[in-house]
Design a protein around this nucleic acid. Sequence first.
DNA 1: CATGCTTGGATAGTGGCACTCCCCAACGGG
DNA 2: CCCGTTGGGGAGTGCCACTATCCAAGCATG
Lengths: 215, 215
Amino acid sequence: MRLAELSTRSGVSTATIKYYLREGLLHAGRRVTATQAEYDEGHLRRLRLVRALIQVGGIPVASAREVLAALQDGDLDRNQRLGSAVWALPHGPAPDDDDPATEVGRRTADALLDRLDWDYGPTADAPAAPAYGMLVTAIATLSRLGYPCSVEDLEPYGRAMERMAVSDLDLVERYRTPEEQVEAAVALTVLYEPVLLSLRRLAQAEESRRRFGGR
Amino acid sequence: MRLAELSTRSGVSTATIKYYLREGLLHAGRRVTATQAEYDEGHLRRLRLVRALIQVGGIPVASAREVLAALQDGDLDRNQRLGSAVWALPHGPAPDDDDPATEVGRRTADALLDRLDWDYGPTADAPAAPAYGMLVTAIATLSRLGYPCSVEDLEPYGRAMERMAVSDLDLVERYRTPEEQVEAAVALTVLYEPVLLSLRRLAQAEESRRRFGGR
DNA sequence: CATGCTTGGATAGTGGCACTCCCCAACGGG
DNA sequence: CCCGTTGGGGAGTGCCACTATCCAAGCATG
């Protein structure tokens, strides 16, 4: 199909598609002549994924490019590809080690990961995952504002996420090829985030209504 | 204290503080002379909250202003204030009703909220909560990409969020005054989001490692 | 009281990001 | 042959979160 058809079928303007082509989020179509190119269903599928990551998942174009590059890096195995894709997702400001609250955050995070028996914190031979820094920063910020969150407060959240991860991976394993699995993992990681956050806000509203009354 | 001291104590540049004052995120200091103003601990506290919401919570300045305005709206009771504060948080693009996938999303969301026995969906007399639209959009996007998520898939996530909401509200009720409670609720809603998301990513990495091996 | 630094307020400018507009040369159907 | 359409590419736009500059009014010191 031509660019114009890719545009109407995806609902993305040709200008934006050309922008994504330039930015490397979409690979070029098969060149038919010097001035025309042919796109296929793969392009349409990829374009829909890109839009979903950017618009619904809210991730920046540059991060999306890295995530997608990791998806199809033939040099990596399945677990590594998944790791580097998630690694490329935005993860907020790094912990500020000049701030004393960061020390609290780091200790709490380490104790929590230890309690949960996960091993993605910093070690001698591997750098900490970006999500680890994100966790430290968030705990530090809460403590700076005077809302301490202890390991005991956090452990149930960790356990809940552990159960979700199991069902996420179950879902991923329904797909046969590693390519499909890695793409599914990325899509589920990013697109379940708004699902979780909206459910949390709805649950809070519901619980607040139950406790404090009214609507 | 003077603006300069507020700046050093908060770690925020005077230029940025002046910007927040202009944008109404921080109320003006007590005017001492025509060209000098005095700030207090309340300003420092508010400034730290603003920075946390914007930098760690990632919410835009305009949304932060609305959230903070809701916090101190004396005309509302506790539940309403909490509701309108959370209402003002960013919630992504609204569902696109021209897209057939939105219909799927809406039906799934309605069935889910019904199953969970929550009542924050759209009704005859009240508009849907923004988080409802966020949920519909996310489910619709997943289904458009070919990742259907059924009510059965989502219910456990909803239940998990229900339990989190209970412990969130328990934490909020530790505070005595309604002002403190509402501020705590907003801070916990926003700042636990990165905690949850980072724990989820770490849990996924851990589970992926367990299933697929390696590190 | 003169001088020179600081303070707070206002206005304009900066850099990054995600597009979006416009032009051009090359097709290609009638 | 000719005129509308296509793809490529660079420049421009609008928004956002600051940030730099300017100015008049303090205050501090000699």
